[in-house]
């Protein structure tokens, strides 16, 4: 109980110090998290360069978890230290870029999805269009499905057009995810990715309300 009623200065003190230093409050915690996870890297040289790279990213306010995951992927794949460092740095750069594109206050999950989309070669302007279609809802699933479609060979412009249309027509994240899964099944069955998308997108669209009704039903709440 005492902890719950700690003097207010104990809470505000670090906040004021952080504010004065121009650092977000989460930085020390994330730095600690990055270091402890990165310590699982057996090679000392790799561990050092990765920790530095993650600390640098965290100091810019970026989440550490996706960077640690990228480092661990490199360790598992026996990538050389320079390559792991470069991959972590590139991931940090994409996260930062995604933060700018999905602003003003994207969630960590949105940042990760945005970074994945950029890594898959989706132009940055398209991320802005996705955010513009759903300014208040989470764009995690639309971005993930867009990334998957492009990775399967659907032209980015066509994939974006279909996904954004579904978003504007009021499709739910589950319906958008279903589109990705259906296209995956069609491609596995031998259909060309762009043709599969066309067919499946029409199928989902037929279940949605008309554009006018969709506008009226559009959710106004803030994304989680």
């Amino acid at each position: 109980m005492r902890a719950l009623h700690a003097p207010r200065w104990r809470i505000l003190g670090p906040a004021l110090v952080a504010l004065l230093l121009g650092q977000p409050l989460v930085v020390p915690a994330l730095q600690g998290q990055a270091s402890s996870v990165a310590l699982a890297i057996p090679d000392a040289k790799t561990r050092l360069v990765v920790e530095r790279e993650i600390a640098r990213a965290v100091s810019r306010g970026l989440p550490s978890a996706p960077l640690v995951a990228k480092a661990m992927e490199g360790v598992t794949k026996l990538a050389p230290p320079d390559r792991i460092r470069a991959a972590v740095a590139a991931q940090a750069q994409r996260l930062e870029q995604a933060r700018g594109l999905l602003g003003p206050t994207p969630t960590e999950a949105e940042l990760v999805s945005g970074a994945e989309a950029l890594a898959a070669g989706i132009p940055s302007a398209m991320l802005k269009q996705v955010r513009a279609a759903w300014p208040t809802q989470s764009v995690v699933m639309p971005l993930d499905v867009l990334t998957e479609l492009v990775a399967r060979g659907v032209p980015p412009k066509q994939a974006l057009e279909r996904v954004v249309t579904l978003m504007r027509r009021g499709a739910t994240p589950v319906q958008i995810a279903g589109l990705g899964a259906a296209v995956q099944a069609d491609v596995a069955a031998g259909l060309a990715p762009d043709a599969a998308l066309e067919v499946r997108a029409r199928g989902v669209m037929s279940l949605l309300p008309s554009p006018a009704a969709a506008a009226a039903l559009a959710p106004s709440g803030r994304r989680p």
Binding site: E73, T76, A90, E116, A120, V145, Q184
Partner: peptide
């Protein structure tokens, strides 16, 4: 080498290889 399962979309992994991309609704 690490490979993507054949039924998943393949993306570059940043280490010169590939990973499979799986979106779970």
């Amino acid at each position: 080498p690490w490979r993507a399962p054949r039924n998943l979309a393949r993306v570059r992994d940043g280490f010169g290889g590939e990973s499979g991309l799986l979106v779970v609704p």
